[in-house]
Structures are given as C-alpha cells and as structure tokens.
Design a protein around this nucleic acid. Structure first.
Lengths: 288, 288
DNA sequence: GACGCATATTTGTCTGACTATATCAATCGG
DNA sequence: CCGATTGATATAGTCAGACAAATATGCGTC
C-alpha cells in the first residue's frame, strides 16, 4: 500500500508539472472564484444570516445544496414519495460534482428527509418521518412562510415544555446561571427586540433557562425551540411593530426563578408564551 | 472551462491507463470483496437491530462508520474539542476511501456533533450543541450504558410532554386513531412487553397517541421519545424481569382518550410514565 | 402460473488530482 | 520594537471517472 503510493507519487509528480504547464497555457485559470459569483448555488443569506446557522455551511457547496433541497422539500416542490432524478443527472444539471451532490443528500438523509437505495433512487420520505425538530430543518422551514398550523403547533410545544422547564430551573439553577440570565435581561431592556442584539439576548435568556434545568434532553430541545422562537420573532417583527413590550414578562419569570419559586416561575412563563403566541397570531391573521 | 476539461481529459486518459497498469502490476487489487468479509466496519447489529434504525444504514459503509464514530463520541472516546485525525490518515487507517469517510463525517456534522474547517480539521463540538433528540443519536446513546442522569432527564421530558399530549389527544383524536390504538393495546395484552412484537405494539400505541394531537412538532418529538422508550424498555428487560404489569396503565389512558376526557388522560398518562420511571430506576440501582 | 435468473439501472465505493481556505510564521515597514 | 502584510503549509472541499454492489423488473423455464 505504502510502496504503491510512493511509486505512484514519483510517476505522478512529473506529470503534474506538465499538467500545470498545460493548464496555465491553455486558459487562464477561471479561479473558480469569479465563477462562483454566478454559481446558482452560492448561499445567499437572504434570511439575514443568523451566525448560528450560517456557520453550518459558510460557502460550502454541499451545505448550500442541502439547504436548497431542504427548503424545496419542506416547501412542497418535492412531495413525499417523489423520487429525485438520479445522481448523475442531478449533479450535472446543477453543475456540481457527484461527490458534492452525494454529501448534500447524506445531510438530508441524516435528517430523515430522504432515503436512497440502489436501483430505486433517492426518495422523499413521509412527512412524519422527517426530523422537524432539527434546528437546521426548522430554519429551512421558515425560509418559506410556514403554515399557520405549524406555527401554532410550535407554540403549543413551547406552552408545554417551557413552563415546566421554568419550574425545574427555579429549583436547580446555579448562581452563575442567574447571573447570565440577569445580564441577558439587561441587554434586552437596553436594546429591545427590534435589534439583532436584543433578539440574541432573548435567545440567550431562554437558552440559559433551559440549561438551568440540568436536563440534557430538555436543553437540547431548547436549542431547537430557541431557534424557532428567534425565527418567529423575526417574522413577527417583519409584519408590524410589536404590539406589547415582552420585557416585563421576562423580568417576572426571572425574578421567580431567582427566588426559587417553582410554581410562580411556571405560571409566569406560561403567560409569557401565551402572550407571544397571541402576538404572533395577530401578526399573521391580516393576510389570511 | 469545458475546453480545458476536455484537453486535460485527453492528456490524462493516457496517463491513467499507464497508471492503472502500474497499479495492477505492483500489487494485486484486493478486490475489496474478500477484504470486506473481514472488514472491521461491517455493521454487526449487536443491539438486536430494530428495523427502524437498521434501515438507516443497512450495510452502507458510510452509515456504519457514522454509527461507530457517533457511538465513540457519545461514549467519550473523543471528547469535545478533540480534533480527529485528518481525512487521509483516518480513511487510510480505517481502510476505506476518503469519500466514504467524508460522507460519514457529513452525517455527524448534520447532527451537530462535529464541525470541520480547512486547515483546522474536524473537531468534536461542545456537548450542548449536539442534537441528542435525533432518533439516531439517541439510539447510539444506548449502545453504551448511558448515565443515570441522562435516563432520568429523558423521563423528565416524557413526564412533561406525554401527559400534555395525552390531554390534547383526548380532544382531537379521530375515530381511526382510536381504532389503531385499540389494536395496539390488544397486541400488547396478547404478547406482553417481553416479546419484540409487544414492544412494537407499545411503540405504536405511543406514536399514534402523539400523532392524535395533530401537532407536527409534538409528533416528531414522539418519534424520538418513542425510540428512547423502546430502548429503555429493552434495557429494563435485560436486567431483570419486569416488576409490574404496565398494561392496565395503558388501558386506562386509552379509555380516557376514547371518551374524550382530557384531564383524566393527562393524569393517567402521568402515572404511567412515573411508573415506568420507577421500574427503570429500580433496574438500574443494583449496580450503583 | 410460479419460480428462478439475467439484466439494467441506480446508488455505493474507490482513486487520484486539484482548489479554497485558514492558520502560523516570517518578513517588511513604521 | 511592534504591527501589518505576505507567504508557506496543512487541511478540508471539490472535481472527474471508473468500478462494485444491490435490487426491481422483465424474461424464460418448468
């Protein structure tokens, strides 16, 4: 194995030199960079680009493709049971290599959205099998206006988990976590939710809260829900100015947690989420 | 661009032929087939092989590798912040191609467990960033004995979501779903949880229940939790025979849902989960 | 009519080369 | 002496083309 590699290396080196020469002679290198500017797949952060998500595929081809395909599937361009064109055709028509295409498909497959088998192709799975709680998938979901039912469902989930989590957090939080939440709250007060920094602080607040439950599964769910919250908040903002100031609600939750009052924390959080749902619904109903 | 490729292709083709010749001469190709029979990665379904999960990577190399790496990461072989050996070395030492290795890494990356950047390598991310609610990840988790805290956390999550879901299901279930739950219950009664079929019926019961909430997010969470339930059940079984018969609990939940009594459904479900937690804890404590 | 077998098609795997990118060090300018 | 620019280097990312494996489909045989 090694021996082979060595020998091949020797042979190759000379050839590569020749190749480079040809390369340079035949045609100025298109550098791929100026090609990329018009590549149909360059990830255009149309959504504003939360760092959290952008990080996942900053300019990586397979990531961008997975994103696009994911959005298309969620948006109904490909329906459950549809079979995408085979790898050769797909990669060719997208003007990318088969490897890149395959890696994109692997990403989708790992989120349960497609399933590929030899001789069959790559099939979009049933909707109830795909993993919509994956933060990335959730992000894709919000690229196209998600259905009202879906958003309602999301809030229902928040309404179930977050109050319970707040109660647990009130019992288990560490002083350090209280400090972090206090800081986040201060930032929120200063910036309001209209700014990116304010939304980030909101996210930090909820995330720290979930983390304070010292429950790994719950914390993970938080990351997801946090993502959703951030999306809906943005969504809400876009349609009309916020009708109520959510800061007092947050402050009440915080105080309850700080003094370790579990049932108060639960109750305040429930009211907070309910308000948020109301706001979101209000901002959605006009265009119904 | 095209032209370049063509010309290079011509030049290369001849070279490649020569290369192959050398290749063949220097060392017989191990045909991969007879190599594979003893391939260290052949997925041995040590866990018994739930169809649901096995389907994800039936013999696929990248799937098996993702599985192995995933288990190793979850098991602490690679810690957060560790950087795995580079792609060339890894794929060589595993005796697989770089593509297969890369696809495995993509799977892991899409679950948030690793993050790879040029010149840095592939780094294991912070534990709180990985997506433990992904059904596959959860499955991997149970390959090595998960920590008691983790299991407790999982049950806490069940304790939060399932009663609420039962209440919603009581209000929204369709006749069809009642029928499916009844059937599942019957199977459970006939087979008990000791058999595979019985466990499957249990899973079907919970899944249908979650589905009956007509809440997509909740249903997705159910798939995950269902997976967890099935794993813990198996886990429980392995250590000692079940101490209590869980069928009556299920029956009570079912009846409440059938007659649309939301608060009863919530209450019965809560008691069911609590019992299950107790059983699981009992079967874990001995070896503490 | 049922069962086994060939075939064709599609994903899966392999190989090797090249590109892009980001870190780190060294060098140059202030 | 310090800082910014630049270059070297190592690593993931992309590409291209071949071959292997799997399996649904259709054919042929019994």
């Amino acid at each position: 194995m090694r021996r082979k590699a060595q020998i091949m290396g020797l042979i190759k080196n000379n050839f590569v030199k020749y190749q480079r020469k040809c390369h340079a002679l035949i045609m100025r290198k298109p550098t791929l960079t100026d090609n990329k500017t018009q590549h149909p797949l360059t990830f255009t952060p149309a959504t504003g680009g939360h760092d959290m998500f952008r990080a996942a595929f900053q300019g990586r081809l397979h990531g961008a493709l997975a994103h696009n395909l994911g959005v298309q599937i969620l948006g109904g361009v490909y329906k459950s049971g549809d079979i995408l064109p085979n790898e050769i055709d797909s990669s060719e028509s997208l003007d990318i290599s088969r490897s890149a295409y395959r890696e994109a498909i692997r990403i989708l497959a790992s989120k349960g959205m497609v399933e590929s088998r030899p001789k069959i192709g790559t099939r979009v799975t049933e909707r109830d099998r795909w993993n919509i709680l994956d933060p990335e998938v959730l992000g894709w979901m919000f690229e196209t206006e998600p259905s009202e039912d879906f958003i309602k469902g999301l809030f229902e989930l928040r309404l179930i988990t977050e109050p319970a989590a707040a109660a647990l957090a009130a019992e288990r939080r560490t002083p350090d976590q209280i400090e972090r939440m206090r800081k986040a709250l201060e930032v929120m007060e200063a910036e309001t939710l209209a700014s990116e920094a304010g939304r980030m602080a909101d996210l930090e607040f909820h995330h720290t809260l979930m983390f304070a439950t010292h429950n790994e599964a719950l914390a993970s769910l938080s990351t997801t829900i946090g993502a959703a919250v951030s999306w809906t908040t943005r969504y809400k903002q876009r349609h009309k100015s916020l009708s109520r100031d959510p800061i007092p609600d947050h402050a009440r939750v915080f105080e309850a947690i700080e003094r370790g009052d579990a049932s108060a924390a639960r109750w305040c959080m429930e009211s907070l989420v309910r308000m948020a749902l109301e706001d979101t619904q209000k901002s959605m109903s006009p265009q119904t």
